[in-house]
Design a protein around this nucleic acid. Sequence first.
DNA 1: ATGCTTTTAACAAACGTTTGTTTCTTGGCA
DNA 2: TGCCAAGAAACAAACGTTTGTTAAAAGCAT
Lengths: 199, 199
Amino acid sequence: MMADVQRLETGNGPRAAILNAAMQLFGKQGYTGTSIRDLATEVGVLPGSLYAHIQSKEALLVEIVADGIHRFITAVEPHAHGAGSPVDRLRAMIVAHVEVVAENPERSLVVFHQWRFLGESSLPAAIERRQVYEGCFIKVMEEGVGQGLFKPEINQRIAVFTILGALNWTPEWLSPDGRLSAQEVGSLMAETLLRGVLA
Amino acid sequence: MMADVQRLETGNGPRAAILNAAMQLFGKQGYTGTSIRDLATEVGVLPGSLYAHIQSKEALLVEIVADGIHRFITAVEPHAHGAGSPVDRLRAMIVAHVEVVAENPERSLVVFHQWRFLGESSLPAAIERRQVYEGCFIKVMEEGVGQGLFKPEINQRIAVFTILGALNWTPEWLSPDGRLSAQEVGSLMAETLLRGVLA
DNA sequence: ATGCTTTTAACAAACGTTTGTTTCTTGGCA
DNA sequence: TGCCAAGAAACAAACGTTTGTTAAAAGCAT
């Protein structure tokens, strides 16, 4: 087993350290509940020193959220447009989602809960990306129903929200160091969630 | 001096108006993202005037969260200890949960997301109540497996977290004025979630 | 000495809260 | 009915602190 798994921001240097600390604090205390002084203390630097590396507190949030959504989309979207059956694709999407969460639960908490605090200039883009992500699940769900693989009488909107809700809540309890691997947890969740919609 | 905890009453008095506005704002902007001035503006009063009715900003959160958890437990716990089969009981619990959410989604958002910001004096009690609530679902799940009604090979912990995750996410999208009633949405979700665990 | 980075110090604004006073409403008593 | 004391509620202003951020000076490598 690798001794030093780098599941933090790629690249080193003070900027990555700041982004990492911000992810941790924003996830734990929320964006508005975290002060620049909190962040400086965590990094081990005086407050003003941060501004040699960041443009603003909000720029940190923008970067964390944008990068976070990107990771989810990158991991899940290929499966949505894959070649297999909607059932297999949905299963792969669920597993992929859980794996991204396990990679860094705090970052996922920021992505799912703190995006509201983005400024007016960056909020629309984030919302659009989120809709792209949800659209992946809606698309596969529709195809599954269309091919008669999923129960025809299910409410697709509610089925998707049920699945996404279960997935979005995972950073709240999933432990990357738990007994089960992310892949195993994802498979178990996929099993449960898929049986709920199968024809 | 000990301040008597007053129960959250719907409707009358300026105090209820403040609690209502606080629920709305805490749910939308978060506890730390909502200022006393925000709250005063929403109520239509100057900031200082609020303190004729409340003890502190945090006391508002304490009351909203405590009352909120109480509503969920009151609505769901009877079904957990009911007489029917675990299947029927779990279904009833899911429907009841969704109905409480629909009753006031903003309050549910506060209960699920803002409890972290409770002070050290009130946080343990809130966590304990939450565990009581989750315990209801764990109990029924265990009984279902024990009676051979639920799949024996499911991971109970993960199955419960999957169900609770889907439920806890509902305030994020559920609209009380939507086409479907809360009872209908709850039934659809129960249908989907139950089929995931049935033997 | 040239570039980064950090320190130091300070800024204006917003924070939760308290205070003294005014305004509005209400009920008892002549 | 008229008068007035009492209560409730809001106002206006300020408190000490914390907020995000900035500018100037100092440290330290190359």
